[in-house]
Design a protein around this nucleic acid. Structure first.
Lengths: 236, 236
DNA sequence: AAGATTTTTGACCAGTTGGAAAAATGTTAG
DNA sequence: CTAACATTTTTCCAACTGGTCAAAAATCTT
């Protein structure tokens, strides 16, 4: 334990080593090694569990670390701060979450396109409920961490697809309705089965609340939107 | 500081005074005086702000107290614990929240009944968005504090109204669809405008995202459900 | 095997959290 | 006025929070 020299040496070493030893992600780059990517995936998985259940504020690093099976400092070695984990989760989510809408094709016919959009969204609600809930909690809290993304990326995509829908209506293939609210209603009805899952299961009861509920929902929603949007109806 | 006797005396006094000085609500009864009811209402108002924004875990007593304009211990004088505030909010909420559904009348015709149900739900989404979000956060978190209520009260009400809807369908007044999923879709589409308000406004943009969005939504939803559920259609 | 690097851990910290105790301050009935 | 009660504030605490740090352990390189 030499007095000054050691101190200086330590400081130099520390600053050097801490900059080098922290994984690339912590410095804003993509992870390089296989193990780093694996660990980060484990953390993101655990974080998805916790964030989707408690929201950003209600989730704690300790909880995430426990679910991920590692110590808190170890977790913080891969993600320097809580917000970083959340940001990664959200931004990756938005891409895949909007994929079904992105696939809606102007060249197709409206009803097959809309029906398969509904189906895909319902499948996502069934297979990735945590992602849906994460998105929902973020929205409920006013989307403070993704306001830019929804005001730009999301809006542009919806604007584009609204024009596609309007094109179908111009061709007389679809009842003329507000395309934005049409998209909203598809989002709402499909995501409902992920976000309000507890309620849905409780109301349907043990017999009907099983795995079949998604098929029932798909049948109902397709019928609703099919009849509801079919052109050339008059109120009888 | 007498050893044992004082201890006993203290315990007696404490238990007596704390039981008497704490307002009735804290002991599970209704508040008696006007001032108590007023203060509790102020607290509940503030708590609604905070809980609906951050969920149960993310909300802090300090925040609620600050919004309510009083000190934390003072707040805790009226509600002995955080959970108590939340419980009160939720249970009061559920009653008013289900009122529109309760009003759906078997003796009426289906389309006026369903349309006015949609309108009422939309009005609630517009006028009481915090309540809607509080309900949503609770659901998203698995409804741990109201599981009993939704499994009994809510389920019974929905079962009853599902039978009403089935009655309409038996009379040929309504396309035959799953009544439960019909109710879900009305819940989802209407509450969407409260819970995902940020998203809705961002996507609609400044021009269309103003106050008119609820009227647009009402028009669209009425049309969707009207055409979607009108009997005697065939796929053309 | 030695050295360099990456990963993991335990101790720690300052600020926040839900909540308890008690003292101080009203308020009101006799 | 004053005793009994209702309300509010001050003080305090133990547990938890996000996050740091140095050292230990594991891994990789040569």
């Amino acid at each position: 334990m030499v007095p000054i020299k050691v101190k200086n040496a330590e400081i130099v070493v520390v600053s050097k080593s801490s900059a080098k030893s922290r994984p690339a992600s912590a410095r804003g780059h993509r992870p390089k090694t296989r193990i780093q990517r694996e660990k980060q995936d484990i953390i993101l998985e655990a974080a998805l569990d916790v964030f989707s259940l408690h929201g950003f504020r209600g989730a704690t690093i300790d909880q995430i670390a426990e679910v991920a099976g590692m110590s808190k400092p170890n977790l913080l070695y891969y993600f320097p701060r809580k917000e970083e984990i959340h940001r990664r989760l959200i931004s990756e989510l938005l891409v895949t979450w909007l994929e079904p809408l992105r696939e809606m094709d102007a060249k197709g016919d409206p009803f097959p396109e809309i029906c398969s959009y509904i189906r895909r969204k319902l499948e996502m609600a069934r297979d990735f409920p945590r992602e849906s809930r994460l998105f929902a909690t973020e929205m409920l809290q006013g989307a403070p961490r993704i306001s830019e993304m929804i005001e730009v990326d999301l809006k542009n995509l919806v604007d584009e697809k609204a024009r596609v829908i309007e094109g179908w209506m111009d061709d007389g293939k679809l009842t003329r309705v507000d395309p934005y609210h049409l998209i909203f209603s598809i989002w709402a009805t499909t995501q409902h089965y992920a976000d309000f899952d507890v309620q849905v299961r409780a109301v349907l009861g043990p017999k009907r609340g099983g795995d079949g509920r998604f098929e029932d929902a798909a049948r109902y929603l397709e019928q609703l939107f099919l009849f509801g949007l079919m052109p050339g109806k008059s109120i009888g």
